[in-house]
Simulated assay, not measured.
Amino acid sequence: MRNIILSRATASDIENQVNKVLRGLGNPDPPLRLQDVRDLLKLDRAYYSTTDDGFLREKISKLTIAGAQVLKRPGLLLEAVRKFDLRALYLPDRRRILLDRSQPDAKQRWNEAHEVGHSLLPWHADLMLGDHEQTVTPSCHAQIEAEANYAAGQLLFLQTRFLVAANDSTPDLDTVRSLHASFGNTFTTTFWRFVESAHSNLPMIGLIGANPNFPRRASEGRVRYVIESPAYRKMFESLSVDSLQTGIASYCRPSKAGPLGSAEIIISDRNGEPHVFFFDSFGNTYDCLTLAVYRRPHKRVIGF
């Protein structure tokens, strides 16, 4: 799956909404406390379990009998959780965020911020939980999820605070590790945010997936997410997952954790001109994360 880059108008609307929240909190230092955000926005948080059907049904029952009816069809929430393997939900009628308690705390932080993002965007209220016919289209679903992700990133990384820190540092995985620690978010979400927003004039690609030379299962040895920076999209075509996979496999060590290797790989731009990218991969025990950063034009050697 490739990242969706929002239009400037949509991104600006989301940034304005998040900016109101951060100003309301007094422009806090990192890491952001999501409890403070919930208190400011008067949001409630509860938990459910995808492994306990009775527990989940009880939660739905309480939500649908407490005051106004939350859903037109009470069973819709349970259906959505089961069908789409949801890890979090936002119920606009109750201003309540539900989190899957089985998820690690670090992932719950992102999931909660994502649902806060839905709550901040007025145009999302009618699109939640299948209450609008447009939600049946994959393109609409992908768009609103990208918008909520953008809002979550703006919140958790404190908008320009992250950009200033990122742009003052070298574009490499060591910088991502440092920012991950400073802002208190997962390595993966920090990595994603870095590729999409830092060093705006520098073409970069972020790749997330199993190490092709050390998959847990043969079917998992593939790139799952491809994150392209705006500068990359402007200058280069999207590469196929297979070609990216081949490039990573050419140097990655067969390990699941720690530095996995690096190499210079040539990528042609939209005009067919070759350029050198530096690929560097790191394993976090779950995934292989690869940062590919533009280095220079490739000089062709002409023989005589």
Rank of each mutant, 00 (worst) to 15 (best):
S12P: 00
S12H: 13
S12R: 10
D13Y: 09
D13K: 11
I14N: 05
I14E: 05
E15A: 15
N16M: 13
Q17E: 15
Q17K: 15
V18P: 05
N19E: 14
N19H: 12
K20D: 06
K20Y: 04
V21A: 02
V21F: 01
L22E: 01
G24N: 04
G24K: 03
G24R: 06
L25D: 02
G26H: 07
G26F: 08
N27W: 04
N27R: 03
N27A: 04
P28G: 08
P28R: 09
P30W: 03
L32C: 07
L32T: 06
L32G: 07
R33P: 00
L34A: 07
L34C: 07
Q35Y: 12
Q35G: 13
Q35V: 14
D36N: 15
D36E: 14
V37N: 03
V37Y: 03
V37E: 02
R38S: 12
L40T: 05
L41P: 06
L41D: 06
L41M: 14
L41A: 05
L41I: 02
K42V: 13
K42S: 15
D44E: 15
Y47I: 04
Y48I: 04
Y48C: 01
S49V: 00
S49M: 00
T50Y: 04
T50S: 10
T51F: 11
D53S: 13
G54K: 10
F55G: 01
F55Q: 13
L56C: 08
R57N: 08
K59N: 10
I60M: 10
I60T: 12
I60Q: 08
S61Q: 12
S61G: 07
K62M: 12
L63H: 05
T64P: 04
I65E: 12
I65F: 09
A66Q: 15
G67D: 08
G67W: 11
A68Y: 11
Q69G: 15
V70M: 06
V70T: 15
V70I: 12
L71D: 03
L71Y: 06
L71W: 00
L71E: 05
R73T: 11
R73V: 12
G75H: 04
G75E: 09
L76S: 10
L77G: 04
L77D: 03
L78Q: 07
L78T: 02
E79K: 10
A80L: 09
A80D: 09
A80F: 03
V81K: 00
R82K: 14
R82I: 11
K83M: 11
F84L: 15
L86C: 12
R87K: 14
A88S: 14
A88R: 02
L89R: 02
Y90G: 00
P92T: 03
P92M: 06
D93L: 11
D93T: 13
R94Y: 11
R95D: 10
I97L: 01
L98V: 05
L98C: 05
L98T: 05
